[in-house]
Computed example of a mutant assay.
Amino acid sequence: MTDSIEPRILIVDDARDIREPLGQYLRRNGLRTRLAQDAAEARRALGAEPVHLAVLDVMMPGEDGLSLCRALVHEYRLPVILLTARSAQDHRVAGLDLGADDYVAKPFDPRELLARIHAVLRRVPPERPAPGRQRRRFSGLVHDPARAVVTLAAGRDVALTSGENRLLGLLLDHPGQVLSRMRLLDLLSGREARAYDRAVDNAVSRLRHKIEQNPRAPRLIVTEWGGGYRLAAEVDTLA
């Protein structure tokens, strides 16, 4: 994260006694904040000005946090930290599967949440280099990093999140090579990314569900047990 960027954090929680003190705490610690009490207000905030990360309560009236999480990750390509009940293991798993970057269980220490926000922003800085713009074909599929889509063999475009777009680009940069989880984390965003050690596994799983014919028996992104992941395809660069 560059010194010129002051990250803006969107806090979405229907509990005013959590939302407002948390906003004040983050502002005292150098972050700008926008507050929203529900999904509709959060969407209006996103339309008003750029946001770099969302802190999102899962249990909210109306559109719930998991539905909003899906939109924030896939439509707005926004990093998300979930606020969950301490016993809500299913919500945490579902949120991570949807692409959330991390979670904090309620009741939480705001110092822990602040540390996790900084860790995610180090992995996904507000100004990060755009992926390469060259289109590449592999195993009948075409990756267009500028549009963040993969065109399947049947001609259908599948949208990628920013993290999936970068991950696929890295695998295409190293066809046939085994890339360890730590190596992928380093290539994606630096060594600070290790705050969440299953980030790569979750990203690979989501990417497989989008591009593999059978994600349970992947043939493109192959797991090398004890090693990492390998792209098992030849790669051609398109004009």
Rank of each mutant, 00 (worst) to 15 (best):
P131K: 15
P129E: 03
V150C: 03
A195R: 00
V80M: 04
F138S: 06
I18Y: 05
L114C: 03
S205K: 15
A217R: 05
A88N: 09
L141K: 12
R70D: 09
F138A: 08
L171P: 12
E192H: 15
A153Q: 05
S189F: 00
G95Q: 03
P215M: 08
D97C: 08
L22F: 08
H52M: 05
F138Y: 04
A159I: 00
T2D: 12
Q213E: 12
G176E: 06
R123F: 14
R32E: 13
R206I: 01
I211N: 04
A88G: 06
Y196C: 07
R27G: 07
P21S: 02
A54E: 00
Q37L: 14
H118I: 04
T161W: 09
R16E: 09
N202C: 15
S162N: 09
L56A: 13
Y196L: 08
R183C: 01
A199R: 02
Q213G: 13
R44T: 00
L179N: 15
L172F: 01
H91G: 15
V235I: 09
T2R: 13
Y229T: 11
P131S: 12
G226E: 03
L31G: 09
A233T: 09
V204R: 07
E224F: 15
G140L: 01
V55T: 06
D201W: 11
A88R: 08
V149W: 13
V235A: 06
R19P: 02
E75A: 02
R19T: 03
A94N: 05
L121F: 03
R216T: 11
L231P: 01
L185A: 12
R198K: 15
P145K: 12
R28P: 11
D197F: 07
V12I: 13
S205E: 13
R92V: 07
V200R: 03
A42G: 14
A39V: 09
A54M: 00
S180T: 14
M60V: 04
E49D: 13
A48V: 15
P7S: 08
R156Y: 10
D3P: 14
E63S: 11
L10D: 10
R198D: 14
L56Y: 11
H52L: 04
I81P: 15
M60R: 05
K106W: 10
I18A: 04
R44Y: 03
H91K: 15
V124S: 07
G95D: 00
V120D: 05
R191K: 04
Y103I: 01
R16S: 08
G132A: 13
V93C: 10
P110K: 02
R28Y: 14
F138N: 04
W225P: 09
A233Y: 12
E63V: 13
G176Y: 06
D38V: 12
L231Y: 05
Q134V: 01
V55P: 05
A54F: 00
R198N: 14
L66T: 03
R92W: 01
R128Y: 10
N165A: 10
L187C: 07
H74K: 05
D14N: 01
E234Y: 10
A100V: 05
V124E: 11
R92M: 02
G47M: 09
R136G: 13
A199T: 01
R194E: 12
P50M: 15
R34N: 07
P21Y: 02
V55A: 06
V178F: 06
P7K: 08
V80Y: 06
H74D: 02
R183G: 01
R92Q: 08
Y76L: 02
E224K: 12
T151H: 09
L10H: 05
A159V: 00
R28V: 12
M60D: 03
R77F: 10
L179H: 14
T237V: 15
